[in-house]
């Protein structure tokens, strides 16, 4: 009767739905890539992590070797503690260097690992001691401005030494008196 035809069509319908959901999960989403088998977790402390987010990739030599598992704030040292999950297939020396890089000028941030030369390797629960903070754009710009300002001041000093004896402390530098 008609019943069987309906059953067949509904079966096809549901199969299509499950297939597209699987397709979305595997092909479109990151379900496969975020599953990296067995892992070990290490921590790294940064003074500033910029815009690093949980689940951001951890790369070494450009290859994704792990993911950022979680980020928390250490209230004693006033630092950010980043938990990093690394694929068990990849072993890194104890003195591995952890950086926070930005993909492209405005892209997402990721953790870059640079292997050191130690004989011993990082194990689960270890801490990466050598870290470099994220480059924060605002900081970079203000640094640039400060350098520019002090350069022009130095120029002034060399031409007219007696004119100005004010200490050139970065913090008290006023942009107003620096012609650039």
């Amino acid at each position: 009767m008609e019943r069987t035809k309906i059953d067949l069509w509904v079966g096809i319908f549901v199969a299509l739905g499950v297939a597209s959901l699987l397709g979305l999960a595997m092909k479109v989403g990151n379900l496969t890539s975020s599953k990296i088998g067995d892992t070990y977790t290490v921590t790294a402390a940064f003074e500033n992590i910029g815009g690093l987010k949980p689940n951001a990739p951890v790369k070494s030599a450009g290859v994704v070797v792990g993911r950022v598992e979680g980020i928390r704030f250490d209230t004693k040292a006033y630092e950010a503690i980043v938990n990093i999950k690394i694929d068990e297939r990849y072993a890194f020396p104890k003195d591995t260097f952890a950086n926070i890089y930005t993909a492209g000028l405005l892209g997402e941030q990721y953790v870059g690992l640079e292997a050191g030369g130690d004989e011993e390797v990082l194990k689960n629960g270890d801490k990466i001691t050598q870290t470099q903070d994220a480059v924060v754009l605002e900081k970079m710009i203000s640094q640039f401005l400060y350098n520019k300002a002090s350069e022009t001041k130095d120029d002034n000093k060399s031409t007219d030494v007696k004119a100005d004896t004010k200490p050139t402390d970065g913090k008290s530098t006023e942009l107003g008196d620096a012609p650039f």
Binding site: A25, G29, N30, S33, N55
Partner: peptide, 19 residues
């Protein structure tokens, strides 16, 4: 095309929320 997509579409945040 595919790798950028996979890197930026999250299963939990995007796909499951859509469902």
């Amino acid at each position: 095309f595919w790798s950028q997509m996979q890197a930026n579409v999250d299963f939990r945040d995007d796909i499951v929320n859509g469902v």
